[in-house]
Design a protein around this nucleic acid. Structure first.
Lengths: 209, 209
DNA sequence: ATCCGATGTGGACACCGACAACATCAACCG
DNA sequence: CGGTTGATGTTGTCGGTGTCCACATCGGAT
C-alpha cells in the first residue's frame, strides 16, 4: 500500500539544508533564513535540521562562512584579472580592484553580504572567531605587495589594512542597507572611485591615476 | 468595588512607548524591540501600541530617528570641544573629533547605532528617506570649513564626505558587530588613530600631527 | 538475526506580530 | 443636563516561528 514516494531518510540532508539556506539568504537576508522554510524547501519535516545543526544560529553561521568564501573569491578574481605589467602599477591596480570587488559583491549579493557580517541573536556563538580570515588575509597580501614594490612606505603599513577594510566596508554598508541605498548605480560608482582615490592618496601619498 | 489602580486610559502613552523602545533598543538592539515587551514595560496591554504606530516598523523607525539625533549631538559636542585657536589646526582637529565621536557613539551605544542604520523587514518604509541628514549635514559643514581655511583643495571637496563617512562607519561596524568586535579597546583606539591619519593624508595631503 | 545509534517525524509549548470586536472615557453638542 | 461620537485601551484570536520531547525508521555492527 505504501507507495513510498520519499525514503524515510534523506541520506544527504546536511549539505542540502545549507544550500537551501544560502538560497534563502540570497533572496531575503538573515531574517529570511527561517528553519521551517528551509526544511519545507528541502522536502523534509521541520526539526529534521536539528539532527545536523544545534541551532538556527549554527545554520546561519554556516551560511555566513560560505558567504565569506564567496567574497574572498570575488576579490581574488578581480585582483588577478589586472593586466598591468609594470610592478608598481600592477600592485596599485590590484588594490583598487580588490576594493571594487568588495563593494560589487555587497551590491550584487546584499543578502549574503548581510549574513556574512551580521551576528544576530545566537549566531555569534557559532561563528568561527576569525571567519573573515579569508578576505582579510587576501587584502593583507595585496598590501604587502605594495610595500614590496616600494610604493607603500613600510612605516605606514601598520593600520593600512584596517583603513582599507573600513573604507570599503563602510561604503558597502551605507549603500546596501544604509542611508545611501537609494543612490543610483552610476552615482555610486563615481563615489566609489573618489573614495578609492582618497585611500590611494592616504596610503601611497600620490595619485598615479 | 473597583479599586481602580490604573486609569483605563494611559493619557500619555505614545512618548512613553518610544522611551521604552529606546531603552530596549539600547540593551538588546533592533531585534530586542518587541512590541509586546514594550507594552508590558509601559504597563499597558499588547496592541495598545497600534493606536499610536501603524506597525512595529513605525515604532522602530521612531527609535532610529532618535538614535540619529543622539549621534549628531555626540559629534557636535566633541567637535565643539576643540580648543585649538589656529584656524587651520582647529578645522583639522574638528574633523578628527567628529570621526572619533562617531565611532565612540557606536561603541558606547551599539544597540542604538544598529537601530539607526538598520532597515530590517518593514522598517525602511517608515523611515524618513534622509534620516541621516543631521549627522551628514554636520560632517559636510566640518569639511566646508576645511576648504574655507584653505587646507582642503576645493577640487577634492567632492567625494570627501563619502570618504569620511564610509571610513568611520565601516570602522564602527567592523568593531561593533563585525569580525573585529573582540579587539580590545586599547588596540581599537590605536587603530582608529591610524585610520584617521589615512583620511587626513588622503584629503589634506600632509599629516600635520 | 538482533540490537543500537543515527536520522527523520509528529506533536506540543511559548512567544511574536497583526487583526477584529469590544470597553472605556472625555469632549462636544443638543 | 443627557446623549453621541471618536480616540484610546483591552481581550481574544490567528498564523508563524524556534525549540523540546517522544516516537518511528533504518542501516550497519555484533
Amino acid at each position: 500500500m505504501s507507495t513510498r514516494t520519499q525514503p524515510y531518510h534523506h541520506g544527504n540532508l546536511r549539505p542540502v539544508l545549507v544550500d537551501t539556506a544560502v538560497e534563502l539568504a540570497r533572496s531575503t537576508g538573515p531574517d529570511g533564513v527561517v528553519l521551517r522554510e528551509v526544511a519545507r524547501r528541502a522536502g523534509v519535516s521541520h526539526n529534521a535540521a536539528y539532527r545536523h545543526f544545534e541551532d538556527r544560529g549554527a545554520l546561519l553561521a554556516e551560511v555566513a562562512d560560505r558567504a565569506m568564501t564567496q567574497l574572498e573569491q570575488a576579490m581574488r578574481a578581480r585582483a588577478d584579472a589586472v593586466t598591468a605589467t609594470d610592478p608598481v602599477q600592477r600592485a596599485v591596480d590590484r588594490l583598487g580592484e580588490t576594493g571594487r570587488a568588495y563593494v560589487e559583491f555587497a551590491i550584487a549579493e546584499p543578502g549574503l553580504f548581510a549574513v556574512a557580517f551580521t551576528s544576530p541573536e545566537g549566531v555569534a556563538e557559532h561563528r568561527d572567531p576569525d571567519s573573515a580570515a579569508g578576505p582579510y588575509a587576501f587584502l593583507n597580501a595585496v598590501l604587502d605587495d605594495l610595500v614590496e614594490v616600494g610604493v607603500l612606505p613600510r612605516e605606514r603599513r601598520a593600520g593600512a589594512d584596517e583603513a582599507c577594510w573600513a573604507m570599503v566596508h563602510g561604503f558597502a554598508e551605507l549603500h546596501v542597507h544604509g542611508p545611501l541605498r537609494e543612490v543610483p548605480a552610476e552615482a555610486r560608482e563615481e563615489m566609489l572611485e573618489s573614495v578609492l582615490a582618497v585611500i590611494r592618496r592616504g596610503l601611497i601619498g600620490q595619485d598615479p591615476a
